[in-house]
Amino acid sequence: MKKYYIIARNTWDEMLTYRVSFVMWRIRNIIQLLTIYFLWQVILPPGKTLLGYSQSLMLTYILGTSLIDSVVLSSRTYAVGEEINSGNLMNFLLRPINYFLYWFSKDIGDKAMNICFSIAELTLIFIILRPPFFIQTNPFYILFFVFSVILSLFIYFFLNFLLGLIGFWSPEVWAPRFIFITLLGFFAGSLFPLDILPKTIYEILRFLPFTYLLYFPLKIYLGQLSFLQIASGLAISIFWTFAIYFIVKATWQKGLKSYTAYGR
């Protein structure tokens, strides 16, 4: 569908008009990344292991989260709530366009830009720091890794969209989002691998969708999961993908009903 391609392209162009702020934001990301990177390098000297992680595995995990972060955990759907509140949603309801796909296309444009920058940054880090990077060669793991990343992309998109839909009922769309972002930083495993947590806590996290956003795909990449673990993990993420999709769909229908009945 060409219209969605153009939406993605326009989003890309739009980002280019704010080059400076985008570059600044990326620099912030790099600094954040380097902080965690050096921290782990000190905690885990070469040759030692911590809770089953050697230095190279841990550093790969940390750099990997950064890459997936920019592919998966970037979504522009935070603006959905504002559009509902400002009444701009009307513009979409009156045009033959799918609002979900509209935002998904915007996200694709956004992600494409972020992927380009991430790859450039990681290459730079790779050349300068020469980290002992773990490279997965087993195509079986790589395949499941990619599949799992795609699932997490959808989970994150729907979760974010859902948060935006709060706008149908309340103008305060930001407070829930801040809580969400904070929870996410912890539960998705962007600071450390989740399996270094006590086993009981991890067993609970395993059933939440957040685990499958970063931690799970990277564990597959590192080749640390058995086939059974991969299968059950994928099953849980597929379940969440559909569950959240249906929740978003139902919420959208309900919100639209009140929107069109009460007007704005």
Binding site: K2, K3, I6, I7, N10, D13, E14, T17, Y18, G87, N88, M90, N91, L94, R95, P96, I97
Partner: peptide
């Protein structure tokens, strides 16, 4: 149909209007 409201905008703020037109061209086929 079209509904034009003086206070609602659909143009992409950071882009030239022609980009919105081209998008609408595709949206409306």
């Amino acid at each position: 149909i079209a509904l034009v409201m003086g206070q609602k905008n659909q143009l992409w703020w950071d882009l030239p209007p022609i980009d919105t037109f081209l998008l609408n061209k595709e949206i409306y086929g």
